[in-house]
Nucleic acid binder design. Structure first.
Lengths: 206, 206
DNA sequence: ATTCTGAATAATCAACAAATCGTTCAGTCT
DNA sequence: AGACTGAACGATTTGTTGATTATTCAGAAT
């Protein structure tokens, strides 16, 4: 029982080394098994398949990232705008740097997202929860109040989608991306016509 | 001289038929040339290459679309919010329907965007100009006024990027997409905290 | 002189064979 | 009985060959 977890971890560790060294596609189950001094077949007593090992690695790594984001979302001494700013920028920077300095990890993330849409969805859901926490904290502090937080979080994600998909960046540099994200955030926070807001608020609920 | 344009048009017409019938990849230059009763080599006196024929077709088609969008952007009898709504929805619907009912045209668009990034960029620029026109019209009518219209247009495009890339939709239905676009538009127009807008407006210009 | 042809060329694609690799499972070991 | 092995299997990938096709250009036709 407790044994199992040890072996599981050993497999994850071995796979992590191989994946980050040679990439997901270029490491074979036989190699991972070899590193753990066991037969390929035995891996399947601990994981349903190769992709699930990658998923385990990604989950572990991503969970740490989530903890970090959660702290940013409710950081004291910063107003809601700043917290949202920090949150979105942190995600952008993480993605950008992973792409730049660790292409192999990025490639692995791509494979998982493609092969396991559920996983990508789970990540979005988690980040949405954090956005909701941020808004709840803002409400608690009297910064502002939003009726449907879950829906609003979804829309914030939709509006910042561009910054989550490197495929859409087309050789844009980080500074350029940051400048754009800053602009989009402004749009989201302030709106196109902050003064005209009052007139339209009523009719918007069609 | 005037002759040249006639032949050019003939080639475009022949290619248009072939491309929409069998797809871009499945039609050969020899076939297009045959339809025009000329040799393959002669096509190259009128177009640098196959892709340029496709580009000519796309440009022609897209120009009509642009005229349509321009009308929507300055339509009388509608306020700025509605005009922006109509504009963004028209683009979404066009893309969606092209994808659904004319996969061959969509595939051609994909090839052009991939092979000729400049072209995709040109399209974005044109739509940005229309957004600027919309804002100028809004200013003229006293609906609202925006300082840097070019920049704001860029940000509106960034925020609505999701609705321009079918690759990101994967199985989302049009109603769901429309609901989302509606939400994002609300975010853009009204902002997250329309009441708190005044406090933050000053500090935002860091 | 200009317009066009069509064979030559080089790049791309399709199809097929060989090899590799993820996964399974009958059976061994402890 | 439970943990593990490793040969066997099928799917996927890789490598190769032949054909197709975009593009060029020397020269024919007008």
């Amino acid at each position: 029982m407790a044994e199992k977890d040890t072996v599981r971890d050993q497999i994850v560790e071995a796979a992590k080394k191989r994946f980050s060294h040679f990439g997901y596609a270029k490491t074979t189950m036989a190699e991972v098994a070899g590193d753990c001094a066991m037969s390929p077949g035995n891996l399947y007593r601990f994981f349903p398949g190769k992709l699930d090992i990658a998923e385990a690695i990604a989950t572990e790594d991503y969970s740490k990232h989530l903890d970090h984001l959660r702290k940013i979302a409710v950081a004291p001494g910063k107003d809601a705008r700043q917290r949202l700013h920090d949150l979105l920028f942190e995600e952008l920077r993480r993605t950008y740097h992973k792409l730049e300095k660790d292409p192999r990890a990025y490639q692995m993330a791509r494979v998982i997202s493609e092969e396991r849409p559920k996983f990508a969805n789970w990540m979005l859901e988690n980040e949405r929860k954090i956005l909701v926490e941020l808004m709840e904290e803002a409400e608690r502090r009297g910064e502002f109040s939003i009726a449907d937080k879950e829906f609003t979080a979804e829309m914030v994600q939709a509006a910042t989608m561009k910054f989550r998909y490197p495929q859409l960046w087309s050789k844009l540099t980080l500074p350029k991306l940051e400048r754009e994200l800053e602009g989009v955030m402004d749009l989201i926070v302030r709106g196109l016509c902050p003064n005209a807001g009052a007139e339209h608020t009523a009719e918007a609920a069609e």
